[in-house]
Design a protein around this nucleic acid. Structure first.
Length: 214
DNA sequence: CCAGACGTTGTT
DNA sequence: GTCTGG
DNA sequence: CCAGACGTTGTT
DNA sequence: GTCTGG
């Protein structure tokens, strides 16, 4: 799954610069907060938007619904929450994400080995509140784990390689859906300190420190 | 995802 | 336990 | 037809 | 909204 992640440029050790935007570093991005997403703009170029992490369906009366921050790739077809948004695809940039070992609760930081920044597959929606306010929200699609993740968790976010980002955003569903598989290129993980990572209020670089002497 | 609050009364 | 907040 | 649920996790 | 259950 993917319930916490990192926005950071580890090459410049600073903010992420993307599509003309300067995105603030955040070492502890959590559901219900604002996240940057990439989607097709009106002129069909890729544009950076901001959305609430946790998709809000059109029928929601308020924001007090369960946080739909992940969507299972294998259950998209006909899904009452996500299927109506299947044409509203987006990419969610990140430097890495956290995963908690299912049994030990030890958190790990997981990265793509040869990419400082990578992109997960998502869907977004524009929700109209009863008072007329609009809110864009998004969810991250999950799939089975690859070898890097398998020993700690049974889900992982779908990562879209550079050559398929346009396909995810533009292709008809059958083609786009074929991209929703476990990531095959090299990834690596290392344990991090739960004292820092577990609490969303801690979003310093300490979250990325390797935890020794477990 | 994890952390933290969760209630009523009356008073400020 | 269960819900809300981040 | 109307009513009611609609999700992901993990856990049992 | 849209699907399932009754």
């Amino acid at each position: 799954m993917c319930g916490r992640y990192v926005i950071y440029d580890r090459l410049t050790q600073g903010n992420v610069v993307l599509l003309g935007h300067d995105i603030p570093t955040n070492f502890n991005v959590a559901p219900t907060t604002e996240i940057p997403i990439i989607r097709r703009g009106a002129d069909h170029t890729q544009e950076l938007y901001t959305a609430r992490w946790g998709l809000i369906p059109n029928w929601a009366k308020d924001l007090k619904i369960p946080p739909f921050f992940n969507a299972r790739a294998d259950k998209l077809v006909g899904n009452k929450v996500f299927w109506p948004c299947i044409q509203q695809r987006c990419l969610i940039p990140m430097a890495g994400f956290y995963e908690w070992d299912q049994t030990s609760k030890q958190p790990y930081f997981i990265q793509v080995s040869d990419e400082a920044l990578f992109y997960t597959a998502g869907l977004w929606n524009r929700w109209c509140a009863p008072d007329g306010q609009q809110l864009d929200s998004a969810t991250i699609i999950t799939t089975d784990p690859n070898d890097t993740l398998a020993d700690i968790h049974h889900r992982m976010p779908v990562i879209v390689d550079a050559e398929y980002r346009d396909t995810w955003l533009d292709a008809e569903f059958t083609t786009a859906h074929s991209l929703l598989k476990p990531y095959t290129r090299p990834m690596h993980k290392y344990p991090v300190n739960s004292k820092h990572v577990n609490n969303v209020r801690n979003n310093s670089i300490q979250c990325l420190e390797i935890m020794h002497n477990r």
